[in-house]
Amino acid sequence: MEQDDLQRLFDSKIEQEIRIEPKDWMPEAYRKTNLRQISQHAHSEIVGMLPEANWITRAPSLRRKVALLAKVQDEAGHGLYLYSAAETLGTSRDEMMDDLNSGKAKYSSIFNYPTLNWADIGAIGWLVDGAAITNQVALCRTSYGPYARAMVRICKEESFHQRQGYEIMMSMAFGTPEQKQMAQDALNRWWWPALMMFGPNDSESVHSQQSLDWKIKRVSNDDLRQEFVDKSIPQVEYLGLTLPDAELKWNEERGHYDFGPIDWEEFYRVVSGNGPCNKERLEARNKAHNDGAWVREAALAFAEKRQINVA
């Protein structure tokens, strides 16, 4: 088929909501955009394990510990589903690992904030996973088949993540005055970074319109952010906590909550590598990767030896 025909066939599939599959022809820019987004998403799952793993050994009860362990293990799994999806676009796992470990690839900047105390684990599950779910539910209808299927699987598993986080927030908000204060403090610190997770405002977002046209993205950054704010407010009220936003109020006319401006300078500072924990996260990733090198090599040597014995 001629290039024009291939392009027309691709466009009509997008138009008709037919998923694009790995062996189908796709524009190079579509392939690259998906590859960037899926691999960044995978990296976020992997780096996202670090702030939470920080509290596994100090979880306040066995119930909390098994939940947190299971959650962190899920994040590893989610990273693997997404790396597999990215590999169908013609990159290798090693290349992606190298890009993450060298600092070339980006991951969600939320994971460059520290987890200072146990309440942060509640706030992360509730708000960070909550924001991620809002984004990921929309991505279940993304146009690239392997990405959409990974999202469906991930969304099924994420629901427990948010609920366990909210349960932690409840036990602290309804606990002693000191515990309630810790919950409020965690909410204050995580609220704005959680809103930043949806990315720049639509007016500032460079790739947004093309991604929406290709149906890689199904809902705009600002619309997803608004949805998350609207959903979160009753949850904050139930806890008897307050959001760190003086401008927050219900807008009868819009049927949505209005909220204050986001500090985008902070966002870009963290994205560009100068957040509180960027360096620490990359060091931890590199250490894990390097410390595990002998295991990967030994497993391969063992597999080869067994192959020879069989033959």
Binding site: A70, Q73, G77, R93, A299, L300, F302, A303
Partner: peptide, 24 residues
């Protein structure tokens, strides 16, 4: 078909598949 994974050999692939695709 549920997805794919890397492993050194088939038996490790089975073990990894259990961990990655059968946690629930």
């Amino acid at each position: 078909h549920v997805g794919s994974l890397h492993a050194a050999d088939p038996s490790m692939a089975l073990e990894n598949a259990r961990d990655v695709y059968c946690r629930r």
